[in-house]
Simulated scan of single mutants.
Amino acid sequence: MAGIAGAEEFAHDGSTDIGVLVSHGFTGSPFSMRPWADRLVAEGFSVRLPLLPGHGTRWQDMNRTTWPQWYGAVESSFLELRERCSSVFVMGLSMGGALCLRLAQVHGDAVAGLVLVNPSVMSLRREIKLVHALSRVVPSSKPISDDIAKPGVTEHAYPRTPLRALASLTKLWATVRADLPKVTQPLLLLHSAVDNVVEPENSKVVLAGVSSADVTEVVLENSRHVATIDHDADLIFDRSVAFARRVGAGDRV
């Protein structure tokens, strides 16, 4: 199956001091994360940006995958970086943030720190409660893509939301929420003041649930959900680089 142009996975071997695993979100692809990955490369870091199974092709393909497969892809890239680098950070957007939280829960101190942008761990939408039953009879629903304030910008996500995959996502959310206290690593969480996809309660749940002592919260005033390609993209990139350098230097002392 031919993929979406620009949605390919990306890998770069740079520094052996700092590596960064970058994860895209639900129905998205590396397209929305590549500018962030490119900035990390420019800073000299080793970077892995995987294409999650079922993404970057057709929404029908995503309905054939489940969250353990998405997690397996980020874990494989994370372990590659662990073989190469002294400190490995995990950075994710939306569902990618949930996958990064799961990496931190499973791998403990092997994760040097987390940078999360509009992480998703739950939803207040009433239809989510019905998604498991609905997904058995309806394959897809309206899209949740392109919530971007910057004019003329698209993330090239799927034009439909695959419901069987969404039902699996809710299981990831529940797993991650249950284990939030296991997250003890330094955390930088950036969330948009206006987000039409992931409610602000998500960031509140994460911040209230983790056990991290080193926590920084940043509000993105000028971006919506896909903030990595929105007005505040450079702010995200700058803060994530400074965070990785600060925490990474401490790890190597």
Results as ranks from 00 to 15, higher is better:
residue 147 D to W: 02
residue 128 I to R: 10
residue 127 E to Y: 13
residue 144 I to F: 00
residue 120 S to T: 12
residue 159 P to T: 10
residue 127 E to C: 08
residue 117 V to M: 05
residue 117 V to L: 02
residue 120 S to N: 14
residue 127 E to M: 13
residue 93 L to A: 03
residue 122 M to G: 11
residue 143 P to W: 07
residue 136 R to K: 15
residue 170 T to A: 07
residue 151 P to I: 02
residue 96 G to S: 08
residue 123 S to R: 09
residue 133 A to V: 15
residue 127 E to I: 11
residue 160 R to E: 12
residue 157 A to Y: 04
residue 116 L to N: 02
residue 131 V to C: 09
residue 88 V to D: 07
residue 151 P to V: 07
residue 86 S to A: 14
residue 135 S to A: 15
residue 101 L to A: 06
residue 153 V to E: 02
residue 166 L to C: 01
residue 138 V to W: 14
residue 115 V to W: 01
residue 144 I to K: 03
residue 120 S to F: 06
residue 144 I to N: 06
residue 158 Y to N: 06
residue 132 H to Y: 11
residue 143 P to A: 13
residue 131 V to F: 10
residue 144 I to Y: 03
residue 154 T to S: 14
residue 108 G to A: 06
residue 170 T to L: 12
residue 149 A to Q: 10
residue 122 M to F: 14
residue 84 R to N: 02
residue 87 S to E: 13
residue 162 P to T: 02
residue 114 L to Q: 06
residue 94 S to I: 00
residue 172 L to D: 01
residue 143 P to G: 08
residue 140 S to P: 04
residue 141 S to C: 11
residue 170 T to H: 09
residue 139 P to Y: 10
residue 134 L to E: 11
residue 145 S to Q: 15
residue 116 L to R: 00
residue 107 H to Q: 08
residue 161 T to F: 04
residue 91 M to K: 04
residue 99 L to C: 11
residue 137 V to Q: 14
residue 113 G to L: 02
residue 165 A to V: 04
residue 134 L to H: 08
residue 91 M to D: 08
residue 133 A to K: 15
residue 129 K to V: 08
residue 86 S to E: 15
residue 110 A to K: 14
residue 171 K to W: 03
residue 160 R to C: 01
residue 152 G to P: 10
residue 132 H to R: 15
residue 87 S to Y: 01
residue 160 R to I: 00
residue 152 G to H: 13
residue 110 A to L: 13
residue 104 A to D: 01
residue 165 A to I: 01
residue 103 L to H: 07
residue 154 T to D: 09
residue 164 R to Y: 01
residue 151 P to K: 09
residue 130 L to V: 04
residue 100 C to N: 11
residue 99 L to F: 04
residue 104 A to N: 08
residue 121 V to M: 02
residue 130 L to A: 14
residue 128 I to E: 12
residue 89 F to V: 07
residue 137 V to C: 15
residue 119 P to H: 05
residue 118 N to E: 00
residue 166 L to Y: 08
residue 113 G to A: 05
residue 169 L to T: 08
residue 126 R to C: 04
residue 103 L to D: 05
residue 120 S to K: 04
residue 131 V to S: 10
residue 98 A to Q: 11
residue 151 P to E: 14
residue 124 L to S: 15
residue 174 A to I: 05
residue 89 F to A: 03
residue 135 S to G: 12
residue 133 A to C: 12
residue 141 S to E: 10
residue 134 L to Q: 11
residue 156 H to W: 03
residue 108 G to I: 02
